[in-house]
Computed example of a mutant assay.
Amino acid sequence: MTALTHTDLDRIRELKSRYARYADTKRWDEVAALFTKDAVMRFRDVDGNLVNEVPAAEFARTIGERVGAGQPVHHLFSHEVSFTSETTAEGVWAMEDLIFHDREAHPEAPFSRMHGFGHYHDSYRKTDGEWRISGSELTRLRMEITP
């Protein structure tokens, strides 16, 4: 049997899948390790306004604090990935995310349920043979928040 190989596209898809799994299991340090050291993550609301910007060095602390005791759930759907060089690429991923809070156990939680829809707009860079996310911007189409 001939050995199968992963293409760069496969590796980028796996990178983004790990992002969702690590975020859902609150493995914040491992989420941060998926990004280049100079990466910035930006979050926009449904009107396109920038609501948060987090540099890579602050991912684990900042994103972990925002989720708190809540349980995140991410779904990634269709993707478009374009290679801009042998070591860089750009991608857009349709996404849906939910965060659930147990308000009885954590009455200070900002909501009991958040359900969002939108797109991740990512840039990728291959360094030392490994693909990393070098920037990410989450844009929102819709947000539903249950108090």
Rank of each mutant, 00 (worst) to 15 (best):
Met1Ala: 11
Ala3Val: 14
Asp8Leu: 03
Asp8Ser: 03
Asp8Asn: 14
Leu9Pro: 04
Arg11Met: 05
Ile12Phe: 06
Leu15Glu: 12
Lys16Ser: 06
Ala23Ser: 14
Arg27Gly: 08
Arg27His: 10
Asp29Phe: 09
Asp29Leu: 14
Val31Trp: 02
Val31Ile: 06
Ala33Gln: 04
Thr36Leu: 10
Ala39Gln: 00
Arg44Asp: 01
Asp45Val: 02
Gly48Trp: 00
Leu50Thr: 12
Val51Arg: 03
Val51Pro: 04
Ala56Gln: 15
Glu58Arg: 04
Phe59Lys: 01
Gly64Ala: 14
Val67Lys: 02
Gly70Glu: 04
Gly70Arg: 00
His74Thr: 12
His74Ser: 11
Leu76Ile: 13
Ser78Trp: 09
His79Asp: 15
Glu80His: 14
Phe83Met: 13
Thr88Val: 08
Ala89Glu: 09
Glu90Gly: 11
Trp93Lys: 02
Asp97Ser: 01
Ile99Arg: 00
Phe100Ala: 04
Arg103Met: 14
Glu108Arg: 06
Ala109Gly: 12
Ser112Asn: 03
Met114Tyr: 07
Gly116Ser: 10
Gly116Asp: 02
Gly116Asn: 02
Gly118Tyr: 00
His119Gln: 02
Arg125Thr: 15
Gly129Asn: 06
Glu130Val: 15
Ile133Tyr: 06
Ile133Pro: 05
Ser134Ala: 10
Ser136Arg: 13
Glu137Tyr: 02
Leu138Pro: 00
Leu141Gln: 06
Leu141Phe: 09
Met143Lys: 12
Ile145Asn: 03
